[in-house]
């Protein structure tokens, strides 16, 4: 399964797409954990001290926010799902 990263998150990791070994039936939380395991340098950018996603970081699962439209970390994934992680940017 593939994560897409944007803006400074992409720069911290050094690439915009990261493949993680997560199977159908595993959850969005599993995929996030796998991403952070592969790229621990990303953890400080996206998680707060309690290990939850920081308020300004957004995640997408096939274009939808799993924390609004599905079961959050427990959202089940299927092969080929697209995952994304992005912050707001402010430049003008």
């Amino acid at each position: 399964m593939e994560w897409k990263l944007f803006a400074n998150l992409k720069e911290v990791v050094g690439q915009s797409e990261v493949e993680v070994d997560v199977q159908s039936g595993e959850t969005f939380g599993d995929a996030l954990d796998a991403l952070l395991e592969a790229h621990p340098e990303l953890a400080a950018e996206v998680l707060n001290d309690d290990g939850e996603l920081r308020d300004h970081i957004r995640v997408l699962h096939n274009g939808d926010n799993p924390f609004v439209s599905a079961e959050g970390r427990d959202t089940e994934l299927e092969a080929g799902d697209e995952l994304a992680l992005f912050p707001p940017v402010s430049g003008g």
Partner: peptide, 29 residues
């Protein structure tokens, strides 16, 4: 709304009442 960062841009519009920018980003970094 438009915002830029190095080589990237984010663009959206809020003209029908809902959602708003805070639905996407509740707080600033």
């Amino acid at each position: 709304h438009g915002a830029i960062y190095r080589f990237e841009g984010q663009i959206t519009s809020f003209t029908e009442g809902q959602p708003c920018y805070r639905c996407l980003f509740p707080e600033a970094p």
